[in-house]
Amino acid sequence: MIAVLGLVIGVVVGLLVAPDVPDWAQPYLPIAVVAALDAVFGALRAFLDGIFDDKVFVVSFVSNVLIAALIVYLGDQLGVGSQLSTGVVVVLGIRIFTNMAAIRRHIFRA
């Protein structure tokens, strides 16, 4: 319940405050959001598996976001930024799909 509340509050805050994203963070923000989504779905899956641990969740969340941003940063420095960010998005997308499949199996048993 609180989790859903937090989601709603986040959307509202994002809409109301509408902070400016600093220039340096702009290439990494979309990747970070995708990585965070991956972590959230992973947490939901773990929760349904009964192996959810909040510490693990926080650590995996932060590391996911940081690593995604780091990879993009590295790619930018190496001149393959767009390709690397595409790769990161693809990998995270696959992971999200896998997690969703597991969650689906848990809830609908199908």
Binding site: V8, I9, G10, P19, V33, A39, V40
Partner: peptide, 26 residues
Amino acid sequence: KPSRGQAIVAVVLALVACVAVVQVRV
């Protein structure tokens, strides 16, 4: 049911939602 894990998840979800909304807007 409210719990510490719930609170943490709520905070993280709020963060993600906020950033996602901002990103969409940007």
